[in-house]
Design a protein around this nucleic acid. Sequence first.
DNA 1: CCGGGGGGTT
DNA 2: AACCCCC
Length: 712
Amino acid sequence: MAGDVDSPRLEDEEEDDTDWMSREEQGEQTAIPGHQAAPSFSRQWTKSDTASKRVIVHLDMDCFYAQVEMIRNPELRDKPLGIQQKSLLVTCNYVARKCGVSKCMSIKEAKEKFPQLVLVSGEDLTHYREMSYKVTELLEEFGVKVERLGFDENFVDITELVDKKLQQQQNVGILEVSGHVYNNQTVNCSDWTHRRLVAGSHVAADIRAAVHSRLGLTGCAGIACNKVLSKLVSGTFKPNQQTVLFPESINHLINSLNHVKRIPGIGYKTAQRLEGLGLSSVCALQSCPVTVLEKEFGSPMAHRIQQLSRGEDYSPVTPSGPPQSLSEEDSFKKCSTVSEVKLKIEELLRSLLKRLHVDGRSPHTLRLTLRQSSPINRYFNRESRQCPIPKNVIQNPNSEDSFSVLIELLMKLFEKMIDVKSSFHLTLLNVCFSNLKPAQHSNSSRNSIGFYLTQKKLPSTEACQICKDPEVQAEEDPEDTNPSTNVCSVETDHTASLSLPDHIDMDVFSQLPEDIKKEILSSPQTSTIHKSSKSPTPSMCPKGIQNFFRKVSARNPQSSCTAGSSSATEIPEQHPQTMMDSGCTRLSVELTQQSSCKDNESGSSGNDTPCTSSSVCMLGNKQINQCHDTDMDCVESGDSGSASYFPRGVDMNVFSQLPEELQKELMVDWKHKKLTPKIPAMKSQEKVKNTRGQRPNSSAKPNNLLKYFKPG
DNA sequence: CCGGGGGGTT
DNA sequence: AACCCCC
């Protein structure tokens, strides 16, 4: 599409330090071999960054919040439902839309239009967030890269799936499109690109079917050769339908946009600036001399937006992984005393700490954001201050002490922005935990085979996201030397690994596959990888594993935990000196049984998780809680309920060689939610259309990991 | 231009 | 820490 390659003027001359993305994305294409001069971050994606023939799906859930509420309360199904946040109607179901209600109306207006509108408060995002991640995780089960965009949209790169499909069906010309074709274009059976997109439409249909049968959600999909186009085309047929875009109609699609603002990637500010240049139509932007744009926006941005205006988008689908920050906010009409502020902040902090506990990672940064009401310029007057979180709080965020320490910190941050001696008028407060790193574990639970699972390599200057050990890490706190955590010193000396720590059962070790034993006992670079998993079902195979790798490598280009593509040639070589550099390879799977509870219903041990029984599993440095909620299928019980998120730092080379059962155990998602809920709404009204995965009675199953450990 | 998020870059 | 983007 858009044939001309026209290598962009290279005006960017920053050093070529991170070339990681192009390696992963460019596939076999070797255009412009000479210069990959890649500026590290604000780089423009060029054609050489992505294989030219991708198939991208944009999946957009229909009125997401409303759907979630309708699942929570099926009685709302056929009522006109609106979701309310403060005085705004953020979304509404399609019953309501028929009645003239629409998104982003004020509550007042909506009620005027349709007084019988049923309103549900949507200020607490918990349920939406949970469902949102279930969708993403489900998509990842297809073994593809998934990028989240907000709570209700996902990009999925299905290129590999399409390739496989085409290989399988060889010349069997099933060329019926699933769903709509944009602009009613005719399919050209002899066109390869058409065939791939047609195959993509079937994958997209499978995906939507899975999301519907497993989660009870409907949505729209757009299938195209890149992200912008897939996103633009996904909305053409609105509720619960899908549309594929063939290259010949790209111009039709992009030119159907009335304003540059409508192009995803061009936001309010950029659109304003473009208008200032007299460029408000897509057409005008397309034909504007780049130099003009460069003057206004700088070169990278200039090229970016002009490419977008032509429907070109070389940016890869970047796996999102777990959130990089957790925040809670509240807005209000007025808040003008310190005690009020403190109360609000306490509230926000309390719920944040709950979420944090579930998440399992530790935040190293705390931020307070506020918005002051100002007569002029009433929007965008947000300010924030942030500070590091003290070590003791990081280690034990849920203690009584930590709470008050955090509150004190927040109030200090507050006073950095607001002179409490003068009067003030706030309309919003936000508390945010960021810089999330795997939790440190305390001594007692540290030893197990898991000990070997995480992989560490520390770039000398930067803290490794994967390894959290303070001794090794060039942490922001230089004197953060906690003598009690001695993990790395042991591991750094490789021979030390040979003597298994006390807590490890030799029986466990002996049950490991030979490969792993070897790997544990030998240097990391000897490791071999084989895609062991004979996937039980082609499309549902828990290949999210590989995905994890992409996440790590995408986020931590410098870490040694790259790799993860399925092709053996792309396995990253591990540097021999890794060990000497204080890195080490370890497989870290620690498990402690929190109590022998299987029927222990009181659950809420210490906190408010809805568990009826639970166990805690340490993966790498991250604690994972496995909880067995009565309403949910257990992780180890379902064939399809594989989690897709792994703590950073799991060595997939090792992981893939573990016995399948053990793998399943490990695939607990990071926020210890079960993946496949039984949907109440569906149980009651629909017959079980759960085609796959009759799960073999969850509760009876023992925790398979246990057999790898000593009873005590 | 108003909600409660999330992402990224300088 | 401010600014941009997205929903």
